[in-house]
Write a protein that binds this DNA or RNA. Structure first.
Lengths: 199, 199
DNA sequence: GCGGATCGTTCTCGATTCGTTCTCCTCCAG
DNA sequence: CTGGAGGAGAACGAATCGAGAACGATCCGC
């Protein structure tokens, strides 16, 4: 739903205030900035902005009108580098980012890797694909994880955790599952999305 | 139904206003811009534009004359429906859209389909994946296309075109390539991107 | 810890603006 | 003369907007 003119003014004023002071204004302070005399009136505008998801809702626990953080780059994630069986994640020197639609990520922190190699080809993950990884240190059995093995190499595999051992299962007839001790495998994240460009 | 000269003038004025201010004008504001004195008169023209589908209908819920946004968000594409071997594209009743990062599409018109079935599984396209299709009627050999066969069924396959015959090649050991006469196969678009969510 | 000041929230009331509908008017082509 | 395009103006209901009062909850100096 589009904002009314006054709501737009309030939003502009909030952005201005954030740029100037970096502090969250109170309703009374906003009233003065906007030339209003009643908090009650302004409150309705702020509620509308909250309904639009532009302002942090404050459920009586703290004060101050906080803008929601940067809705613009909400759809970009850091592209950390490449993941290949046999090598640690090749970090890119420059901090690169890549646009990811919300459907391909979760609400928790995520990052993106580019796949090298065909070890997960039969799971539909090919050489050159981009994979979205949710930053997490535990996984459920059967999930595909980015795992650091003995602090040396990082790989993308399906994980099966049993008492006393962890098995990383590739999706490729030419490769075999490998069994590790639990302390050898550090989960760095869980696969939540994948995408590929053909052109 | 064609627009009357005055309706065209109102439409031009609306586009001008959107370009200048990015805000929806009110009927009174439009009157001033057009040199009119009565909202009631202008209202009839706006109603005509709504009937033509050029202006957002506002059913007393909000104010301001909004132009209909045609592909306003350049990162969203229409999600037309599902594509399955053996059936035409199942059109979704409601016109749905889906966010697609620029990397997964081309600069030409594209749309999105959701894949049903595993006929392209060995090319890394699984059941449930979303594929981005560039709207095009010709393809190069080896490209993956959405093709309409005999006007009946639509399918996603790799295409090989030779003089006098067209072969559609699935990527699945259990399925065989099928040869058609060129006039039996109508290319509806070419695969340019693919994505999958795991959660 | 306490009490007053500050703040968020909710409510009512009134004023203005705006979309809508209606009637009446002019102009012009067929 | 008739009908359609176009405009003026009045009137009504709804959306928008602000003022003010009242009530808890939080914050802060003592």
């Amino acid at each position: 739903m589009p904002l009314t003119p006054r709501q737009q003014q309030v939003l502009d004023c909030l952005r201005q205030h954030a740029a100037d002071f970096g502090r969250a204004p109170t309703l009374d302070g906003l009233c003065r900035l906007l030339g209003l005399r009643s908090r009650g009136s302004l409150h309705k505008h702020v509620q509308a902005l909250i309904a639009e998801g532009l302002v942090e809702p404050l459920n009586g626990h703290h004060r101050g009108i906080h803008l929601v953080t940067q809705s613009t780059d909400e759809n970009t994630l850091p592209l950390l580098g490449k993941i290949a069986a046999g090598r640690p994640i090749e970090a890119l020197p420059q901090s690169d980012t890549i646009e990811i639609p919300p459907r391909l990520r979760t609400s928790r922190p995520c990052y993106v890797l580019q796949v090298t190699g065909d070890s997960m080809a039969e799971a539909g993950i090919l050489d050159g694909d981009f994979v979205v990884i949710e930053r997490r240190e535990t996984a459920r059995n059967g999930e595909i994880v980015a795992a650091l093995i003995r602090g040396e190499e990082t790989t993308l595999k399906r994980i099966v955790q049993e008492p006393g051992r962890v098995t990383l299962v590739p999706a490729n007839r030419g490769l075999s599952p490998v069994v590790y001790a639990p302390e050898e495998v550090a989960i760095q994240g869980v696969l939540v999305g994948q995408m590929r460009a053909y052109h």
